[in-house]
Amino acid sequence: MIVMKQILLCVLLISTTATFTHAQDTTAASSTYENGKAFLRKGDLDNAIMLFTRASQQQPNNVNILKDLTYAYYMRKDYRNGLETGKKLIERPDADDDCYQLLGLCYKATAAYSDCEKLYKKGLARFPKSGILYSETGDLLAVQHKLNDAIKYWEKGIEIDPNNGNNYLNAAHYYDQQGNLLWAVLYGEIFINIESLTDRTASTKVMLADDYKQLFSSPALLNGYVKQGTPFTRAIAGTFATYSNLANDGVTPDALNKIRTKFTQDWTAQYAKQYPFRLFDHFQQLVQQNTFEAYNQWIFNSATNESAYNTWVSAHTDSNSEFVKLQRSRVFKIPAGQYYAH
């Protein structure tokens, strides 16, 4: 009995020691990884790569370490190692669509477009609802000047993953370039609500202001949508056209606010149940909260006429504060099933 107790004690000691050692190793690896991320954020890629490499040896099953290592290689333009690490990533059973995106970045950087296209097809077969991979495939085709093919992937990405902002951004700029201004402003405005505080937001607001000016400066543009658009598109264009006379003295932020307020009231009464659309529901919420003008100023003045915008904000501090509070407190989410072909 004494011998048995001694054996059990030895087993427990070994087990406890092993557990403690494993915990130490895990803690050390986590510390190394966090330090690597700190270097990556500062742009010190050499130190980031060194620490990510060490951490991946300490925790070979941590997929996030390999993802950051691949990204660091990409940022350092070390595409050979980026491709090598990225290929290992996508073969893992716990790989996600980000892994395919990271490897794709390295392929695109080396102009290995055929390999990249095969990669994305493989990724979409594995992750058929990945808005990221639809966006990246569209980008790949756009780089090769295949824009008419690219838009099909961006549209599909919007349909199957409606809260991925990249597809809206790419589609908005595509339609802007093609002269399809109504869908450029719809997708552009959805994008700036999904991603509201970046440089991409500022440039997209400039595009929105320019495209709205063109839409209401030429009645023929809206009438074209009324005559030839899909039912959803006709409903939007027809409602806007009803109030285009409010811009007769100029397509200003004030005029656009009046037009869009009238549009929101009519859309809510006539079409909201038939065509649920998160963007227009957002308009209605802002109208009800008396912050719609602040929202329109944020879109149409803040990026194009900072002085005028600051003057407006100074004169409407309460309304603007309420809008800013709402904007920062909510996440703009689009429900599934609100995609309309056009």
Rank of each mutant, 00 (worst) to 15 (best):
Q288D: 11
Q284P: 01
F292H: 10
N290T: 01
F280G: 00
N301A: 09
A294P: 00
Q297A: 04
Q285T: 10
Y271A: 01
A269G: 02
S302W: 07
E306V: 12
N296D: 10
N290P: 00
T268I: 10
D281S: 12
N301H: 04
F280E: 05
W298Q: 13
L286D: 04
Q297L: 06
E306K: 13
S302L: 11
Y295F: 07
E306Y: 11
T268Q: 15
Q270R: 15
F280N: 02
Q270M: 14
N290R: 09
S302T: 08
N290E: 11
Y295W: 11
W298R: 13
Q270E: 15
F283G: 00
N305D: 13
A294H: 05
W267M: 12
P276K: 15
Q270V: 12
N296V: 03
Q288Y: 06
W298K: 09
L279R: 09
F277Q: 09
K273N: 14
T291M: 14
R278H: 11
T304G: 08
Q297I: 03
H282Y: 13
Y271Q: 02
Q288S: 10
D281V: 01
A294G: 04
Y275G: 00
F292E: 04
Y275R: 02
N290L: 02
F300M: 11
F283S: 02
L286A: 06
Q297C: 03
N305W: 05
